[in-house]
Amino acid sequence: NQASVVANQLIPINVALTLVMMRSEVVTPVGIPAEDIPRLVSMQVNRAVPLGTTLMPDMVKGYA
């Protein structure tokens, strides 16, 4: 099963993503693939993302 990107903490809106904010985990439904974590660094989410939430492509500005 493919690992997805999961919030490692509350990720506020309009804050640049850092490695420490994200972890990889096998979850259902599948979200952004874990291998895209380096690409996500410095991008921003378009809504607050609670701890443990799977990041979906539509949550990250400029990802999709």
Rank of each mutant, 00 (worst) to 15 (best):
N1Y: 14
N1Q: 15
N1W: 07
N1T: 15
N1P: 15
N1I: 15
N1M: 15
Q2W: 10
Q2K: 06
Q2H: 12
A3E: 14
A3K: 07
A3Y: 12
A3P: 10
A3C: 13
S4E: 01
S4A: 03
S4T: 04
S4F: 02
S4R: 02
S4G: 05
V5E: 00
V5C: 06
V5S: 03
V6L: 14
V6R: 03
A7E: 02
A7C: 04
N8R: 08
N8H: 09
N8D: 12
N8P: 02
N8E: 10
Q9H: 09
Q9A: 12
Q9G: 05
L10G: 10
L10W: 13
L10P: 12
L10D: 15
L10C: 13
I11L: 15
I11P: 00
I11M: 06
P12H: 08
P12K: 09
I13K: 12
I13E: 15
I13N: 11
N14W: 09
N14M: 06
N14E: 09
V15C: 05
V15Y: 14
V15W: 09
V15P: 00
A16F: 09
L17R: 00
L17G: 01
L17V: 04
L17P: 02
T18H: 06
T18D: 08
L19P: 13
L19Q: 13
L19M: 13
L19G: 07
L19C: 13
V20Y: 14
M21Q: 04
M22F: 09
M22D: 01
M22E: 02
M22H: 00
R23Q: 05
R23S: 10
R23T: 10
R23V: 05
S24K: 11
S24P: 11
S24M: 14
S24I: 07
S24C: 07
E25C: 06
E25N: 07
E25H: 07
V26H: 10
V26Y: 13
V27K: 06
V27E: 02
V27H: 03
V27A: 09
T28I: 09
T28C: 13
T28R: 04
T28V: 14
T28Y: 11
P29S: 04
P29L: 05
P29I: 06
V30A: 11
V30R: 04
G31E: 00
G31C: 03
G31H: 01
G31Y: 02
G31V: 02
I32Q: 00
I32P: 00
I32F: 02
I32E: 00
P33D: 07
P33F: 12
P33H: 09
P33N: 09
A34M: 07
A34P: 06
A34C: 09
E35Q: 12
D36Q: 12
I37K: 07
I37W: 03
I37A: 09
P38W: 07
P38I: 10
P38R: 08
P38E: 11
P38K: 12
P38M: 09
R39E: 05
R39W: 07
R39G: 11
R39C: 15
R39V: 12
L40C: 04
L40Y: 02
L40R: 00
L40Q: 00
L40G: 00
L40N: 00
L40W: 02
V41I: 14
V41E: 06
V41C: 07
S42N: 11
S42C: 15
M43C: 06
M43Q: 09
M43F: 10
Q44N: 12
Q44E: 15
Q44H: 13
Q44D: 04
Q44G: 05
Q44M: 14
Q44K: 11
Q44L: 11
V45F: 02
V45M: 08
V45P: 03
N46I: 13
N46H: 11
N46L: 13
N46T: 12
N46R: 12
N46S: 11
R47N: 11
R47T: 15
R47S: 10
R47F: 08
R47I: 06
R47K: 14
R47P: 02
R47C: 08
A48S: 15
A48K: 10
A48M: 08
A48G: 07
A48I: 13
V49W: 03
V49E: 00
V49H: 01
V49N: 02
V49I: 12
P50F: 06
P50L: 09
P50C: 07
P50Q: 09
P50Y: 07
L51N: 14
L51M: 15
L51T: 12
L51A: 09
L51F: 11
G52N: 15
T53L: 09
T53H: 15
T53V: 15
T53P: 03
T54I: 07
T54W: 03
T54M: 03
T54K: 03
T54P: 06
T54V: 08
L55A: 02
L55R: 00
L55G: 01
L55W: 02
L55K: 02
L55N: 01
M56E: 07
M56Q: 12
M56D: 04
P57N: 05
P57E: 07
D58C: 13
D58T: 08
M59W: 12
M59S: 05
V60T: 02
V60N: 02
V60C: 03
V60Y: 01
V60F: 05
V60H: 02
K61L: 10
K61R: 13
G62K: 08
G62T: 05
G62M: 08
G62I: 04
G62Q: 12
Y63S: 04
Y63Q: 04
Y63T: 03
Y63H: 04
A64F: 05
A64Y: 05
A64L: 12
A64S: 14
